[in-house]
Design a protein around this nucleic acid. Structure first.
Lengths: 211, 211
DNA sequence: GTTGATACAAACTTAAGTGTAGGTATAATC
DNA sequence: GATTATACCTACACTTAAGTTTGTATCAAC
């Protein structure tokens, strides 16, 4: 067996990416070898070296494939004219955590991001992506602050840090292999968490009773 | 040169641990080789293999060395009779974050814990340690809850998750190589964060004005 | 229908790191 | 003060995974 049609080649490329995604998020990037990925996709390493330059390039391709237009749209609507940026951010966080807790591809991608920090070749690219998200979040919070939606004791920087840290911690909590002693009802917790964070960041007058 | 006195041997053991700590936290556990550690300590790998079984055993020894009696005491005082567990927890968190932000050994140790998850041989040991801390924190928060110190919309589980996640996120934020776009005044932020978290978790009547 | 480019497979090379066996000088022990 | 256990060092064998080269069947284009 040898040369295939272009469509078929593209299909094996996607298969390789699928296998890489699965194995990377299952066993970790460093512990996964190219041979394992190839075997999982029923190919040989030759196929990988044909489609990608090396392991780092493979990872890079995974990121490229994972960048969704949805995220872009989300951030844009958050800073639109009529929107309430703080409420949007809280809602987005809630949705994010809920999906992170399922077996969605989002979770796999976040695990990848989490691990890829160990791979120096990708650190810059990752930093870039993080910085973009960070500045979006910062923008939203700044808008909220300018409208007096933030608590007087909470600067934009602190609110930013709070969200940033919570997100990172969530990813760690959900992705990490850590066995938590405490059995948790995630849905309930996420709901209560959002309410709590609202109390922490919102201006006193803007707090609503639980919906 | 050959055999040394017992005291000297113990000293080289400590030197090896020091070098391992430095290199592990500088370049990561996986990217650091035993040869590099030995060279940094002006020894050879032979010395490492004499004092430790392998890389995992070395890491394990690092953890053993890092377990401070201070932490134990801190958790004990938190759940003592007269103490206000919630306030103690908030204070401890504040202190923790401040020290994490310095170049203390605590930071190095936390970075190790963070990375060692990738090393499967240590995952169990780490889980154990984490679980201990978790249960301490959970205990403190439960006590606070029983005294009515928690906000009615905030269950013990949610408060626990909030602290847990914040801690993990902080470690990630401080330890990670991530370049943050936003320049931050850490001291101020930590102060405001604690106040914010207090608003999130504390029962409404117990909130104090800023001290 | 021949020819060149494609899409891999398979075998080989290279490099890095771990593990180990053997040597050796010296502290400890008696 | 002879012996033994200790605390390493040196060198080499083994393993593992990345990277490279070569081979080859087939698609595509003329």
């Amino acid at each position: 067996m040898a040369r295939k049609t272009k469509a078929e080649a593209e299909k094996t490329r996607q298969l390789l990416l699928d296998s890489a995604m699965r194995l990377f998020s299952e066993k970790g990037v460093v512990k996964t070898t190219l041979a394992q990925i190839a075997a999982d996709a029923q190919m040989t390493r030759g196929a990988i070296y044909w489609h990608f330059e090396d392991k780092a390039d493979l990872l890079h391709a995974l990121f490229e494939r994972s960048i969704t237009p949805e995220a872009e749209r989300l951030w844009r609507t958050m800073t639109e004219e009529g929107a309430d940026p703080l409420e949007c951010l809280l809602k987005a966080s809630h949705a994010f955590w809920l999906e992170m807790n399922s077996e969605s591809t989002l979770k796999q991608v976040m695990m990848l991001y989490n691990q890829a920090e160990q791979v120096p070749e990708l650190a810059d690219k990752l930093d870039e992506l993080h910085c973009q998200e960070d500045s979006h979040m910062y923008q939203a919070l700044k808008m909220a602050s300018e409208r007096g939606a933030l608590h007087p004791d909470m600067s934009v920087e602190t609110a930013f840090t709070l969200f940033h840290t919570l997100h990172a911690g969530m990813v760690q909590l959900v992705c990490g292999a850590r066995k938590c002693t405490v059995e948790l009802d995630k849905e309930k917790i996420f709901r209560e968490l959002i309410l709590g964070i609202e109390r922490a960041v919102s201006a006193p007058g803007r707090l609503k009773s639980p919906r």
